[in-house]
Nucleic acid binder design. Structure first.
Length: 274
DNA sequence: ATTCTAATAT
DNA sequence: AATATTAGAA
């Protein structure tokens, strides 16, 4: 029903940095496996030498869930081009992405932490307001549930065990969230407490449980932080006019995969300071 | 008219 | 369980 989503990824290609602009950070660790894995879905990739990733998404391989009974076996043959009705793959909230989310919420303060604002602060391309809204809902749930115990923010010990709230527990919860107390209700934490890092090591395996089953190779394609994109729209509850509008720069990584169900999954995760 | 949020659906 | 979609409120 949403018409805006019809071409969200059609724009991916446009935003692609030219090959030389790519940060040599983790330049293409794409394994043949994955490349092939995706190519089979879309064999007619025109220009694989520049951005194999884009084709992963920008192409029309949305056979959707038509789920032909016993139909579609291998490659192509289905020259579909519905263009509309394209179903956006489920967003996977990786710990990195979630961290960005939490940071954004923290800086905005409870009052301003609404989906639209959060989304803007996060500044992750491809991320929609609804994505954030949905996540926010659950996050609030988590906070509420976690406030039951006045202690234990994120780490093992007393409180919530990561196994239960693996994702949410993977990121430290800003203190003022746990203490609905008043005083300075709004405003942000300058930095994420270093103490937060402690005790996370063992959990890492938990957090990445998804990837444990996936091919261990996650290719990384550096993307430009989306900066000069949105015309700084006017919103009622204007965010602080301070200098920093957006969280620290990052490199966006993205992956499209197929879950056990056969459902497509989109994973975009920022990588700023982790 | 837009966006939030709780409820509900997949 | 995790994320999406809807419905009604703000």
């Amino acid at each position: 029903m949403r018409e805006e989503d019809s071409n969200w990824f059609a724009r991916w290609e446009e935003e692609l940095p030219s090959p030389k602009e790519l940060t040599p950070l983790s330049q293409t660790l794409i394994t043949p496996n994955l490349a092939i894995a995706f190519d089979i879905q879309n064999p007619n990739t025109p220009n694989p030498k520049i951005s194999p990733l884009v084709h992963t998404l920008s192409s029309a391989e949305f056979d959707s869930n038509s789920a032909e009974l016993g139909g579609m076996a291998g490659s192509s043959g289905v020259g579909d081009e519905p263009a509309r009705t394209q179903k956006r793959p489920r967003l996977v909230w990786t710990p990195q992405l979630h961290k960005r989310f939490v940071d954004a919420v923290a800086q905005l303060g409870i009052k301003n932490a609404v989906p639209k604002t959060i989304m803007q602060l996060m500044s992750v391309d491809g991320l929609t307001r609804e994505n954030v809204a949905s996540h926010l809902q659950k996050y609030r749930l988590y906070l509420k549930r976690m406030q039951g115990f006045s202690n234990s923010g994120s780490v093992s010990g007393t409180g919530v065990d990561p196994a239960t709230d693996h994702l949410f527990a993977s990121s430290p919860v800003p203190a003022h969230f746990l203490h609905p107390g008043r005083g300075n209700s709004d405003h942000y934490m300058p930095f994420v407490p270093v103490a937060a890092v402690v005790g996370h090591a063992p959990q890492l395996q938990q957090q990445y449980r998804h990837f444990g089953s996936l091919p261990s190779v996650q290719f990384e394609v550096p993307f430009l932080p989306r900066q000069s994109q949105q015309p700084a729209q006017r919103m009622g509850t204007s965010v602080h006019s301070s200098s920093s509008h957006v969280l620290p720069s990052y490199v966006e990584e993205l992956e499209s995969a197929t879950a056990a169900n056969g459902r497509k999954v989109l994973t975009l995760f920022p990588n700023g300071d982790d």
